[in-house]
Write a protein that binds this DNA or RNA. Structure first.
Ligand SMILES: [Mn+2]
Ligand SMILES: [Mn+2]
Length: 552
DNA sequence: CAGCCAATCG
DNA sequence: TTCACACTATCTA
DNA sequence: GATAGTGTGTCTCGATTGGCTGTG
């Protein structure tokens, strides 16, 4: 594997080879997902010689698509002109292709504009770049402007940005990952776990799925224009109604449907909102439907949905909502755990995030406790370290490329089912281990820094972890990680703010609430879960008080 | 000239 | 970039 | 207390550069 140093040139073919590896992988596993245009593009790439390929990948890594021809400075390309011509002959770039004039004008610097358009400068004296572009656009027809621009600079357009985006989506399985993953790994900025990549893995199956996924990624941008483009909701809805088989794409589709539904709600268009939510497979679609149906006196339909939510919930928020909404509405709902109240005297902590938790911690510390404000970080890290080998162990479709910080299905509901046997074994082993703290401790030191979605290394340092493990009862540790590993996606959020250890050897988890804050559904779910596990958990609620006396 | 931001690179 | 969490405003019981 | 709407921090990999903008 290549080792890179920051600011020192990589091997001449480094970027090219990275890209070639992606292409090779896709041709091996995803040939049928590619469009005819993708295939043509890859064929053209393959026909180019190394120097041209080096240039093309450099251009593709830039933002583009319009690039100044005089801004190509690449040491690894010996004959730039030859490379440009070769790419041009293959149709992989174009030179001076008619482009929107405003994009081309953006390629000029301010002084260059003054020098290139002296007449405009003298006559209109435009101030600032935006004024310059406006001024030129309103005084010249676009093709005239383009000819004038061409007298002063030449520009390239890279073809294949869309194909590259599609290939990256196929390779990484997520729209945010790109070729910089190679660079970050080779620089040592991110250390990835070593795991076997499934050879026959197919992330995307049907040929149309990739196109659909890409469409959904691109579609998101249009939501910004909802207030200004008339009839946009209709075309967005039309592109969102049909479900997708690929889970990541389906998740995205449903998220967009929920956004669109909310937009309709705010415009009081209940029917359209309901139509959006009905197509969505993601929270809070069913909650919104229940609320809207109830509000419009369709209690029967609402009741059906509530039953479905209670029977097969999508997430814990749904569980809690179904539970609390069904009961006598308007009445005070039962609490999940002990709630302690404390006075908060003026002026109190500042409204900064984390201030109220720090205040609570300070109070508890004066009473002899030791604690940390860690929230979800703690149970997730403990679980990640306790079951590291299962998490990075084989499972169908879990690992498809070497840049993963978790199996693809870590947060999906069938995580446990997909690796049932090894998980059962690991759970039994951990549950019966005489000294499970030592496993966690050793794993922390062994894997420190290795990318893992469950483990935020910076949040807990070795000394803090050692102290946590020392004061946390073994049974608490065992029960905690056992419940998380069986459904990581349902345990990801809502864990109480504080881990608190008392001198008598007991410990508890404390959710701190300021005067204007209340429990969220996920937090209720965790408190309930902790209660069921007989792990001490409570809410510490601060109430504002005027008096300067009276401490409980 | 300071401050900021987007682009670029390894 | 999303997401998780908190804060604020307004209403009701 | 319930509900809705809004804000913020935290991830982003970090450093360098060139260019724009506003202030003096
Ligand atoms: Mn919190
Ligand atoms: Mn809290």
């Amino acid at each position: 594997m290549t080792v890179l140093k920051p600011r020192t040139p990589p091997p001449a073919d480094y970027y090219r080879n990275n890209f070639q590896a992606v292409i090779d992988f896709i041709q091996l596993h995803h040939r049928c997902a590619l469009s005819a245009e993708d295939t043509r593009w890859i064929d053209a790439w393959s026909r180019c010689d190394t120097a041209a390929q080096r240039l093309l990948i450099r251009l593709l890594m830039r933002k583009g698509p319009w690039i100044r021809a005089d801004k190509l400075v690449y040491a690894e390309i010996p004959n730039l002109h030859q490379a440009v011509n070769e790419l041009k002959d293959e149709g992989l770039i174009s030179v001076d292709e008619p482009a929107p004039a405003d994009h081309l004008l953006d390629l000029f610097t301010l002084p260059e504009l003054g020098a290139s358009f002296p007449h405009t400068r003298r006559r209109f004296r435009p101030q600032g770049k935006a004024a310059w572009v406006n001024c030129l656009l309103s005084n010249y027809p676009e093709d005239v402007l383009r000819h004038r621009i061409q007298d002063h600079l030449h520009w390239l357009r890279v073809a294949g940005q869309e194909s590259l985006a599609r290939m990256q989506l196929l390779y990484f399985g997520s729209p945010s990952a790109d070729l910089t993953a190679f660079v970050l790994r080779d620089l040592g900025m991110i250390r990835y776990e070593i795991y076997p990549v499934e050879e026959s893995a197919t992330v995307l199956v049907a040929p149309g799925v990739l196109d659909r996924y890409r469409e959904l990624v691109v579609l998101e941008k249009w939501f910004d224009f909802l207030p200004v483009i008339d009839g946009l909701t209709k075309s967005l809805h039309a592109r969102l109604v049909k479900p997708v088989t690929l889970r990541a794409a389906e998740r995205r589709r449903s998220r967009l449907l929920n956004t669109l539904g909310l937009w309709h709600e705010r415009r009081e268009d209940v029917d359209r909102a309901l139509a959006c939510y009905a197509c969505s497979s993601r929270h809070p679609a069913r909650e919104r439907q229940v609320r809207l149906l109830t509000r419009t006196h369709r209690e029967f339909e609402a009741e059906l949905l509530l039953e479905a939510m209670a029977a097969r919930s999508w997430c814990v928020e749904e569980e809690i909502f179904a539970e609390r909404f069904s009961k006598q509405r308007g009445l005070k709902q039962p609490d999940e755990c002990l709630i302690r109240e404390r006075p908060l005297f003026e002026p109190g902590p500042p409204p900064n995030p984390g201030a109220i938790e720090a205040h609570a911690l300070a109070e508890l510390e004066t009473e002899g406790a030791w604690g940390l404000h860690l929230e979800n970080v703690l149970p997730l890290m403990l679980t990640g370290l306790a079951f590291w080998d299962v998490i990075f162990g084989p499972a169908p479709g879990a690992f498809t490329h070497p840049f993963q910080s978790a199996p693809h299905d870590l947060w999906w509901d069938d995580f446990a089912k997909a690796r049932a046997a090894p998980l059962q074994q690991a759970r039994a082993a951990f549950a019966s281990h005489r000294d499970p703290q030592s496993i966690i401790q050793a794993r922390y030191l062994e894997k420190y820094g290795t990318a893992c979605d469950l483990v935020n290394w910076r949040a807990i340092d070795p000394d803090q972890l050692a102290r946590i493990l020392k004061v946390m009862p073994t049974e608490t540790l065992k029960r905690l990680v056992d419940v998380v590993i069986q459904a990581p996606g349902r345990c990801r959020t809502g864990f109480p703010d504080l881990f608190v250890a008392w001198p008598d050897g007991t410990c508890e988890f404390v959710e701190v609430k300021g005067p204007s804050d209340q429990l969220q559904p996920q937090q209720r779910a965790w408190l309930k879960r902790l209660g069921a596990l007989a792990i001490p958990a409570s809410v510490l609620k601060y109430r504002r008080r005027r008096e300067t006396s009276c401490a409980t």
